[in-house]
Design a protein around this nucleic acid. Sequence first.
DNA 1: AGGATTCCGTCGGCAAAGCG
DNA 2: CGCTTTGCCGACGGAATCCT
Length: 322
Amino acid sequence: MKEPWTRDEASAAGQVFEDRLWALFMEQSRGHLHVFRPLLDRGVDGLLHRLSDGAYFPVQAKGRSSLRKGRVQLLVAADSVTDDHVVIVAGEVVEGGVGPSMLVIPTPDFRHHALLTTADGLPVYSMSFSMQPRSKGRWAPWITPSDRLVERFGVPLGLPALAIAPEPEPLRRGPLGFLGETEIARVLAQAERLNLFRPFPDLETVELAVRHLDTGRVLGFQIKTVSVDRASPNRPVDIRIASFRPAPTTYFTVVAWMPDQRRFHDECLVFPSEDLLQFARRAGPHYMFEFQPGSKRQRRLDRYRRPVATLAAETEGLLSDP
DNA sequence: AGGATTCCGTCGGCAAAGCG
DNA sequence: CGCTTTGCCGACGGAATCCT
């Protein structure tokens, strides 16, 4: 048994707990559940993406480095558990791993069963739960063995590992793709009520997940970048068929970099992944179509053309209640 | 023997201390 | 100031013990 975490190590312990949690999800789901982490912490520590149906689960992780009489105690500010979509996952950090069981509980249930008290005049929820699963306290319905976490998110244990198609090109997403992804993140970051997430690790076809802070709805953007100039104003966009997973929550956006002007074209494409086959064709291992920003001749793409500047507002609209 | 009582570890709750 | 840990207390419930 090593020395207990000191005070200034406590926040580090929280980080360790988070990382072990994400690793557990990846390990237990065999690739069927992907982890996204926030670019900016706005109350959600991670998004779990269930590949079978595209569902997203926002997760708030609560790790404790010491038990209190064999129990994990949580005191959380009331205003930090107001989002009903969030699932709280709490557990213990032990040397080299996590405790044998965890609390996996939706925020509304947590608020309902925890004690609402005050700390220095501010409302705080207080609770504690035992590591022993035999206990039959009020929290028992949400206590889960740490090695069966994914079942709480609708992913059965023992699934065959999801084959990850090896990418033929060593640089599947080169500097240009990163530039486009960063541009979309920059534009979306301007929306006050959107929270951005990136996959962790970076093997998801969805490259950016966007969550609305008010409605809790999530969509994933697959970002494609083309480079256009006078000589080649019309450039192909290809999507690997092996990794293409259309889902109602998945959208594509295509931005056009203009290297001679060192900026992006004002026009981009935004379309639901389920629309792709309406205008793309098969080309070997890829689906393919051409994008020419500003063109009047690609009629089938017209309904998806957008000014980049309106992307944030458009995304907020997509995530608002219908 | 059977019911009542006591005991004790666990659980829930609350406040405050500790710490950078 | 924000966050986690610590101290302390009362309620609960199962089990051991006691009483008649």
